[in-house]
């Protein structure tokens, strides 16, 4: 089964399924998606940042702080590309059945733009300002500061100006809607979304 020419070399689908919420057939279906994404610009079975940008924003160019963080979190080996195994690992967190602790941790690392181990006020300001700019919306500095103040008053329990992982966990448990992007309902039904896996499958779940 390993090293099959049609599949990612050295990837053990059964092991990936065992270590994730996915069945073997679902891993195979996700491989169909991975093939499409990883060959969209450079046909090398690796997802480059431009390919992730193209999939998320329908444009291969342009800076985006969110894209950088998402890509970094997928790219576990920090070698500038997303391999299939890394793709499965990251998507596992977004599965409806994934533990909420994993979703909380992943979201924290997304928002921790500078990777300091804290979500800092400047980072939140930067994210809000970026979205305002992208959306052609305007907000006075006064109102923006008011929103940030209110958010930190709720989330930053020890009032040190930054949100620790423990504070983040307590905060999102009070506001679970903040984690809604951390669950992708598509992952519950990937074999239906990518039925072409059936032409390549070698196992029956």
């Amino acid at each position: 089964r390993q090293n099959s020419p049609r599949t990612c070399q050295y990837v053990d689908l059964a092991r990936l399924a065992h270590d994730s919420p996915f069945s073997v057939n679902e891993v195979e279906a996700l491989y169909e998606l991975f093939k499409k994404l990883s060959c969209s610009i450079i046909d090398d079975m690796l997802i480059h940042k431009e390919e992730l940008r193209l999939a998320l924003f329908q444009a291969p160019y342009g800076e985006n702080i969110f894209l950088d963080r998402v890509f970094d979190l997928f790219d576990e080996k920090k070698n500038g590309v997303i391999e299939f195994e890394e793709f499965i690992h990251a998507l596992s967190v977004f599965h409806p059945n994934a533990p909420i602790e994993e979703k909380i941790d992943f979201a924290f690392r997304l928002y921790d733009l500078r990777q300091t181990g804290f979500i800092e006020r400047e980072e939140v300001q930067q994210m809000v300002a970026t979205i305002l700019m992208e959306s052609d919306m305007t907000l006075s500095d006064e109102l923006l500061n008011l929103i940030i103040d209110k958010t930190f008053a709720d989330a930053d329990s020890d009032k040190d100006g930054k949100i620790s992982k423990a504070e983040w966990k307590a905060y999102v448990l009070k506001h679970p809607s903040l984690l809604k992007n951390m669950t992708l309902p598509y992952l519950k039904d990937v074999t239906t979304a990518f039925p072409s896996f059936i032409f390549n499958t070698e196992v029956e779940d």
Partner: peptide, 25 residues
Amino acid sequence: KFFNAFEFISSMSSGFDLSSLFENK
């Protein structure tokens, strides 16, 4: 509606919404 900064970010940022990976594929 978006009095909470994180609510605003998670609702408005397409960058943190990975569902588009599965759309139009």
